[in-house]
Computed example of a mutant assay.
Amino acid sequence: MTNMFFEQSISNFLEAIASDDPVPGGGSVGAYTAATGIALVIMALKISIKKTNNKGQLLNLIKRSQFVLDALKVNLIEDIECFSSFIEAKNKPNNNEIESNNRQLAINEAAIKATAVPISAASHCVTGLKIAVESIAICRKTILSDVYTGANLLNTSCNSILLNVDANLNLISSKDKRNSYSNAKIKLMTEASDLFHAVKR
């Protein structure tokens, strides 16, 4: 996995998104936005830990949050890589039956990967929202707006990331896999919505 993405400036990243190159696209941008959401939760926890007698619980939440942040960074790169692989598969030669079959197999494999990555990223958004719910109860009141903002970004990112499931589902040949991913998508969207409303209460 290349770390070139993380070596560029935010300005260059925004220019890359605004270019006519298909990557970074919705999935990787969604993962990045989700990462900023959980980063805000981490910030709120770290500020709160300075003046509390409940350091153990806060440290546990920070550790769990950092895992989510690191996982989303991996998902971001995976999304760019798997979409690039999907484009390569679509561009394979298609001049005879053997080439056509090989191309279709490559597209199917690339579509599975391009569906599995957003499911993974969305599951990390849900985990981040669970942490946000726990954080609301113990973070300092003066910093709660950042937890709310982080939760908002995680919820919106989850829904945005899962749009890629719809985009790739019909390209997967196995009906069982399609149903499995479709059900996972619905479950994640429901969980994210319920957790977000719990944060807002």
Rank of each mutant, 00 (worst) to 15 (best):
N168K: 13
A16Q: 15
V133A: 03
I49G: 07
K92D: 04
P22Q: 12
S180W: 09
M4H: 13
K175N: 15
N152W: 12
I107E: 04
G56I: 08
G25K: 10
S85D: 15
I42E: 13
A122V: 08
R64N: 09
I131K: 04
K55L: 06
N12G: 06
F196I: 00
D146V: 01
G37R: 09
P22F: 07
L14Y: 14
I112Q: 14
R103L: 03
K187L: 05
T52M: 07
I107S: 01
A89K: 09
S160G: 12
E99P: 00
A16L: 13
Y148Q: 11
K55N: 12
A35L: 03
T127N: 15
N101E: 15
A16M: 10
N53G: 15
G128L: 00
F83P: 03
K141L: 12
L61M: 15
C158H: 07
T156H: 13
L171E: 12
D21A: 08
I131H: 03
T115C: 07
R178S: 03
V68I: 03
K73C: 05
A192F: 04
L154H: 08
D146N: 06
G30F: 11
V23D: 01
V165N: 10
I143L: 04
L14T: 04
T2R: 14
M4S: 13
K90D: 06
R64G: 02
I143Q: 06
K92S: 09
G56M: 13
I38N: 13
N12W: 09
C139R: 08
N54G: 00
N75F: 11
S120G: 05
V23K: 10
A44W: 07
G37C: 05
V126Q: 12
N53T: 11
H124S: 05
A132K: 14
L129G: 07
K185E: 05
Q104S: 15
L153I: 02
G150E: 02
D146Y: 02
A34M: 00
T52G: 10
R140I: 10
N53I: 00
R201Q: 10
E99M: 03
A106S: 15
N101F: 12
G37K: 04
A34R: 04
F13A: 02
V133K: 08
G27N: 09
N170Q: 08
S65D: 06
E134P: 06
L40C: 05
L69N: 12
L171W: 11
A111T: 02
K50M: 06
T33W: 09
L59T: 13
F67K: 10
A16P: 09
A121G: 06
Q57P: 08
A132L: 11
H197W: 08
I10K: 05
I42G: 00
E15C: 03
N54L: 01
K185Y: 04
I38K: 13
A122R: 11
D194M: 12
A106H: 14
L163S: 06
G30W: 09
F196Q: 02
T115K: 11
H197D: 11
S180D: 14
A122S: 14
A18S: 14
C158M: 03
V117E: 06
P24I: 00
V29Y: 07
N95H: 14
K185I: 00
A31I: 02
S11Q: 15
Q104L: 11
V117I: 05
T156D: 13
F6K: 09
I119V: 12
S100K: 15
D166V: 08
I161K: 10
